[in-house]
Design a protein around this nucleic acid. Structure first.
Length: 772
RNA sequence: GGACUCGUAGCACAGUCCGGAUAGUGCGGGCGGCUUCGGACCGCCAGGUCGAGGGAUCGAAGCCCUCCGAGUCCUCCA
């Protein structure tokens, strides 16, 4: 039970009063305490219709609401505000009990939006030739947090990590090992992955510049990797597995876990590409150019939108993959003019798709298969995407990657092409979320467009890239079988909400609740940053995108931190670059934090056992990193600064954890069981009620986080809840009160806070230690 | 040349999807608070033409248009 019940009750009451389905009023938590507990803008909306002032209408509505209110509800009374708002004051004697009784339940904060729908989330996907840096960590933490949130919302989630064990970057370190004399063992104290990235990779790349002969070796090496039987391929397997193991160790340390590892080499050898290629041809999604600059290539014909595609293959979340600019704004001039010559060909943009067959200027084509018959790297993403959606026969079997049991996900599987004794499992999802940074939006858009055609057939030649173009989605229903179409209330299945109220904030509360086309069926696809100026009509159709690119901005280094790495950026932020060695290693960030939190903890607990200190400082360090990575919006660049970003005060995880520790301390000192009957009516202080309201808002935040695929929302909830507790703590004593009933009630409140903050932090993968 | 994203206090960000009540929070600056459950905390003060201009609206930080600034993407490279 939650605060939501109050809003639902008010909405229902207003619906009956207003009896006008066209007025889409809102009922929201009050902006300030003096406005009561909930507010509605209904009077503003009626003002136009009734030709009266909002204030007048609000007065009438309030009066009638109060007159017709049935007893036994959660609303005490309604009061009009001169501004025109209709405000509502809750009957806290009832509401406190409803919320706090509900908070104890296992299901508190859960919302059944997924109803068992399977969502496959891919994140991490870092080239296995280097250690993880702080930029990768943003991807990883976003992916992991989203997975946790989706589980909380009733989805079944498969988490994947795509390992590009056959790419150019792997070839680069092989060149280093075999031709530049790098030894196989890292110096003492360094992980193999760090050694590969910091030393072998960076220096090999550097040597390319001075030694032209290496370029040929590099190309050869790359080709040999793809030849499964070669010595090079075997060696690649050995080193990438070793690097991967180090990377996974970093992830596990941050409480990030996976269900399955996919290896690119296996995808190549599995025949998946061949199957997809045939399908693409059959569906006439791709064309063979017979003339023009792409003569002899199989291409995805470029319309306007598709033309915006990212280049080539996805870069595996490395950022460092290609010729990225390292220092923003510096040396990219040569990048730009390179394409100035092929820009304006005048071929009308939009519907270019069909009509430029044999023409000379297919500038927006994306080449999938080169004229020499080899596939480009974008081609490798397509079969993987299709596999994730379960659109192809699964060529893989699965074996356990390690014996280690992962919390939350259990066994970590990996694909194998050997079918003896291996298991058959499916990791396909009805929906797929791919976490990759914004720079690859273009490519991801293409992939999403192709997936749509795979699922819905080949008849929509015109809507290739854009979101809502396919007016033809009528027939498909939700071909993928995701249960969002029914227009049923996504809350209905849950044990929290009995009413027929649709959560979406839409206004169908009274009438039928079934006519809004299921648009709030949880995860929606519009997240991709791209301006999804969604539906103009209410039969929205943006939800049928089963393939969702969850993009985010990158992590850059502050000028100071860049300088600490020996780079002069002239006062500007610097992009990280794996190949140039400009990055902040994830493990070392953790190490810095661990030292800091260890000493802080010891300062407070001089006698604490070392092991305990370690576990606390671990929880604090992980919290600091994870929180920093998700606390702001996905489309904001994170400027990482070695001193600023590692703070433990203010809007940080440790602030939140501290609130939890304070609560634990009180409960510990109370040293007793609470009686079975608690008199919630004694909790009358504003700070008490505010805390109760926050505890009861858990599910609202979860719902919000899922619909927007926004980890930030969960982080903010934790923060708001902690603030609420700290204020309560400051203003109210809990222990040693003369009034034992009040003490019991406050203790119970503290204990429900403790439980809720623990669960909320769990949503973002952070522990809540009892002492710190 | 085309496309996407961002622009809110000295700094870093909420709020923008879905328009309404004195635009919030943290850091930094100034002042104050532990004989009382943990000061990784709390309170107070200073600090804002919500990038600029226009439009629709009774009403705009939010919606529409134009511009400015910043970042990113647009290879038969991977």
């Amino acid at each position: 039970m939650s605060f939501r019940l109050l809003l639902d009750e008010i909405r229902k009451g207003l619906d009956a009063l207003v009896a006008n389905p066209d007025v889409e009023f809102s009922v929201v938590p009050a902006a300030r305490p003096e406005f009561g507990d909930a507010s509605s803008n209904v009077a503003f909306l009626l003002a136009g219709v009734l030709k009266k002032s909002p204030r007048e209408i609000a007065t009438t509505i309030s009066a009638r609401y109060n007159a017709e209110k049935r007893s036994g509800g959660l609303v005490s009374y309604s009061k009009p505000h001169p501004s025109g708002y209709v405000n509502f004051f809750a009957d806290w004697d009832s509401l406190s009990g409803v919320i706090l009784d509900g908070a104890r339940l296992e299901t508190a904060g859960s919302v059944n939006m997924g109803d068992g729908t399977i969502i496959t989330v891919e994140h991490t996907s870092v080239n296995p030739n280097k250690a993880l840096h702080i930029g990768h960590i943003r991807n990883i933490v976003i992916g992991d947090t989203i997975s946790r949130i989706l589980r909380k919302a009733g989805y079944r989630v498969n988490v994947l990590n795509y390992v590009d064990d056959s790419g150019l970057q792997v070839a680069d370190i092989i060149v280093g090992f075999w031709h530049l004399g790098f030894g196989m063992e890292p110096p003492p104290g360094k992980k193999f992955a760090q050694y590969c990235g910091d030393d072998v990779y960076v220096n090999t790349v550097k040597r390319y510049e001075s030694d032209g002969s290496l370029e040929g070796i590099r190309k050869e090496t790359l080709q040999e990797i793809e030849d499964a039987g070669s010595e090079t391929a075997r060696f690649a397997d050995v080193i990438t597995r070793r690097v991967l193991a180090d990377q996974l160790e970093t992830c596990w340390n941050l409480s990030v876990y996976y269900d399955c590892l996919n290896f690119e080499s296996q995808i190549i050898h599995s025949g998946l590409w061949g199957a997809v290629f045939e399908k693409l041809k059959d569906a006439e999604v791709i064309e063979l150019r017979t003339g023009g600059r792409n003569k002899g290539c199989w291409v995805i014909p470029g319309g306007d939108d598709i033309g915006a595609a990212g280049r080539g293959r996805r870069k595996n979340n490395d950022g460092s993959g290609g010729d990225n600019v390292d220092c923003s704004g510096n040396d990219n001039s040569d990048n730009n003019n390179s394409n100035s010559n092929n820009s304006d060909d005048g071929s009308g943009n939009d519907d270019a798709s069909g009509n430029d067959d044999d023409n000379d200027d297919n500038n927006n084509d994306k080449v999938l298969v080169r004229s020499n018959g080899t596939a480009t790297y974008i081609a490798k993403d397509i079969p993987y995407a299709a596999w994730k959606l379960g659109l192809l026969d699964d060529p893989f079997s699965y074996v356990a990657y390690s014996d280690r049991e992962q919390p939350g996900t259990g066994v970590l599987w990996q694909t194998t092409l050997k079918h003896d004794g291996a298991k058959t499992i499916s990791f396909a999802g009805t929906r797929v979320i791919t976490v990759v940074d914004y720079r690859q939006s273009g490519l991801q858009k293409i992939v999403a467009g192709l997936m749509r055609r795979f699922r819905f057939g080949l008849h929509d030649g015109d809507d290739s890239g854009d979101d809502n173009g396919d007016g033809d989605d009528s027939g498909d229903g939700d071909g993928g079988g995701d249960g969002d179409g029914g227009g049923s209330n996504d809350y209905s299945g849950s044990n929290d909400y009995s009413g027929s109220n649709d959560y979406s904030g839409s206004n169908d509360g009274g009438n039928d609740g079934g006519n809004d086309g299921g648009n709030d069926g949880g995860v929606n696809s519009g997240v991709e940053g791209g301006g999804n100026n969604n539906n103009d009509t209410d039969s929205n159709n943006n939800n049928d995108d089963a393939y969702i690119h969850l993009g985010y901005e990158s992590v850059t280094l502050s000028p100071e931190t860049a300088a600490a790495l020996g780079m002069d950026t002239e006062g500007r932020q610097a992009h990280m670059s794996g190949r140039r060695g400009i990055y902040v290693d994830a493990d070392s960030v953790y190490e810095i934090l661990r030292k800091k939190t260890t000493s802080e903890t010891q300062k407070r607990h001089p006698d604490m056992k070392k092991q305990k200190v370690e576990s606390i400082s671990h929880a604090l360090s992980v919290g600091a990193i994870r929180y920093e990575m998700i606390r702001q919006d996905l489309d904001k660049i994170i400027t990482f600064d070695l001193t600023r970003s590692l703070s433990l005060e203010g809007d940080t995880a440790s602030y939140i954890q501290y609130a939890g520790a304070r609560a634990s301390r009180i409960l510990e000192k109370a040293k007793r069981q609470l009686p079975s009957h608690i008199d919630y009516r004694l909790l009358t202080e504003p700070s008490e009620r505010n805390l109760i309201r926050l505890i009861g808002s858990f599910d609202t935040y979860v719902h919000d986080a899922v619909t927007n695929l926004s980890p930030k929302v969960a982080a903010r909830y934790c923060h708001d809840l902690a603030v609420g507790f700290n204020i309560f703590y400051e203003k109210n004593r809990v222990l040693g009160l003369e009034d034992h009933n009040l003490e019991d009630a406050r203790l119970y409140l503290v204990s429900m806070f403790r439980l809720t903050i623990e669960r909320a932090l769990g949503l973002i993968g952070i522990e809540a230690p009892a002492t710190m």
